[in-house]
């Protein structure tokens, strides 16, 4: 061994090649690096085995360097003593990495000895435990977060698209509807009744005893502002469009099957089971508009 003069004592550590045989009969030796060359160094003259001593590993098979606080020696190639492997295989290259920081015992008499791994054992098991749980928990947390975002996005595709939403709002100018007048506008393909009610009509709508109604609902529940009644002009019976300012109750009358609605759009007579539906709407006072949708 061509080590420096200050070299630490270096003891090669030997392990036997673990050879096993595949079902096909081909022998394999897992874990062996076969990079290294055999001892027999020739001189490039092509005359067979070189002059290197066969009983000493050549200098290139190991290297010692000062790493950090101690010497490290990496030895890719070590001998298998002939008494272990038999004479014929004494030049078989075997790779083991040996460094002085791992407290490998001195050459063991038994090739099956297990190294002392105790220095891998943690000194702080509670830290390790908390860290492992933390990592597992973090994975769950990130995964749950990603899954939530994905599901949200999928659900968002069920919502109305932007072009539908753009058509979904209709603006009605309040100043264009005089008192006691109906206006019918188209909204999402359906007629919407907008009535500018008079004081008398409001009084009438609010004087009804809702206990007598088929679909009990107060007028206050049906309007946002008493003078503006906004509702879908679709008869709740079979979907006809009722006629305004007619019927027995001064409201709407459906010509198809004779349902009568009062001035609050509530079903009072005939086959209609429910009051006329109220769509979502809002007031824009700055521009004097009702925004339906």
């Amino acid at each position: 061994m061509a080590l420096p003069a200050r070299a630490i004592s270096f003891k090669p550590y030997n392990l036997a090649v673990t050879t096993r045989t595949l079902p096909s009969g081909v022998p394999i030796a897992p874990g062996i690096s076969l990079y290294a060359k055999g001892y027999g160094v020739d001189h490039g003259h092509g005359h067979g085995h070189g002059a290197a001593r066969s009983d000493v590993p050549p200098s290139w098979t190991s290297g010692v360097r000062l790493g950090g606080s101690n010497f490290e020696s990496k030895t890719p190639l070590l001998t298998i003593p002939p008494f272990l492997m038999g004479e014929s295989s004494c030049t078989a290259p075997v790779s083991r990495s040996v460094h002085t920081s791992s407290q490998v015992p001195a050459p063991s008499p038994s090739p099956y000895a297990v190294p002392d791994w105790s220095h891998y054992k943690t000194e702080n098991p509670s830290m390790n435990r908390a860290f492992s749980y933390f990592m597992v928990g973090s994975m769950g947390l990130l995964g749950a977060s990603a899954a939530k975002a994905t599901i949200t996005d999928f659900l968002a595709t069920m919502a109305a698209s932007a072009d539908v939403l753009a058509l979904a709002k209709v603006e009605v100018s309040m100043s264009a509807i005089p008192l006691a007048k109906n206006v019918i506008i188209k909204w999402r393909g359906k007629p919407v009744f907008v009535r500018h009610r008079t004081e008398d009509e409001i009084k009438e709508a609010r004087s009804v005893n809702i206990k007598t109604l088929r679909d009990p609902q107060t007028d206050e529940d049906r309007v946002k502002r008493p003078e503006w009644l906004v509702m879908l002009g679709v008869c709740t019976h079979l979907g006809c469009v009722p006629i305004g300012e007619s019927g027995d109750y001064g409201g709407w009358f459906c010509p198809c099957h004779g349902s009568h609605y009062d001035i609050s759009g509530r079903a009072r007579k005939g086959p209609a089971p429910l009051n006329l539906e109220v769509p979502p709407y809002d007031f824009n006072d700055a521009e004097e508009k009702i925004i339906i949708g």
Binding site: N124, S126, R129, A130, Y133, G137, L142, A144, S145, A149
Partner: peptide, 30 residues
């Protein structure tokens, strides 16, 4: 390590707490 033990006892020891804190944490993290 007192901190790690505290963490373990507070969050990890019971699986129900562990899992529910993961879901709550997922919202906060999001």
């Amino acid at each position: 390590m007192a901190l790690t033990d505290t963490l373990y006892n507070a969050l990890f020891r019971r699986n129900s707490i562990f899992v529910s804190s993961i879901f709550v944490g997922a919202f906060g993290f999001g």
